[in-house]
Amino acid sequence: MRHYLRQGRIGLLLVTAVFLLSGCGVKTADEYRHAVRVSCFLFSTVDSFEVERPFADVTTTLKKKTKECLDVTVRLICTNCIGGGESKHIFRPTFIANPDRTEVHLQLKRTEVIAIGAPPEGAYVIVLDAAPVDKKRTKIDIYRQSPDEKFIHNAMRGWVKGDNMGCPDLTTH
């Protein structure tokens, strides 16, 4: 896990708990996929496409980039807060590889927020599925809840296509 710092933004960092209802009661990756497909979230998107790369190559890339780019803790330091001012945004990636399917899930836990109904590892941010089409092609599905995650989505597209290995800057999320 790598550590990231973030300068405090103007405004109050709420030390008191903020209660949020977890969107659509999503607790698992399957429920997240379903919620995105039925547009439970406003502006949610499913991006489905095929890439001209073997499934094994795509899986190797996803494994490497998941560890390198998504296992991130953002430390927020607020300089003008009442009652102190440090919190964390903990991004928790999950990588699952099976012979016929690879999955990447990204969850986010904000320590300054108590999200009622959310999974303990944090709310789902984005989910990617990869499956073999034939020996040379792989089918990709990316489930995204909101436009704010588009840069993560774009980074994942670059990984699976093999044309951009950049990491999303999660401090800007």
Partner: peptide, 10 residues
């Protein structure tokens, strides 16, 4: 290190 609102090291 990329400095935006945050600080991101590579």
């Amino acid at each position: 290190v990329f400095r935006t609102d945050g600080i991101t090291p590579s």
